[in-house]
């Protein structure tokens, strides 16, 4: 069993974790303009913030610049899956 090691960018390959930035929760769709104030507040501010494996946006900001979706354990910081985010 090896260490989880550096973060693996789908395009750039294994890189030091310092090159990546957390990009927030992958939001579902952006609520319509007519949505309620509470719905808009939920979209803006409420987060899953799961303890354990969480789905997160990451950006390879000191690299290819791609937005990525990672399944990462928020206690051990081990990334189980990472892939390109799509529109």
């Amino acid at each position: 069993m090896t260490n989880p090691g550096p973060m693996i960018c789908p395009f750039c390959g294994p890189r030091d974790a310092g090159e990546f930035r957390y990009g927030g929760d992958p939001k579902a769709a952006r609520p319509a303009f007519g949505s309620s104030d509470a719905e808009w507040a939920g979209y803006l501010y409420v987060r899953e913030n799961a303890r354990g494996v969480a789905k997160e946006y990451w950006v390879h900001s000191q690299g290819c610049g791609q937005w990525l979706i990672a399944e990462r354990d928020t206690v051990t910081h081990v990334i189980q899956r990472i892939s390109e985010a799509t529109a």
């Binding site: 507040a41 939920g42 501010y45 409420v46 987060r47 899953e48 913030n49 799961a50 303890r51 928020t74």
Partner: peptide, 18 residues
């Protein structure tokens, strides 16, 4: 730091990031 987890047990979510 356990607020998101405790809120989830009580059935709601909070605007927090730990």
């Amino acid at each position: 730091g356990a607020s998101p987890e405790m809120a989830r047990l009580a059935g709601f979510k909070l605007p927090l990031l730990c």
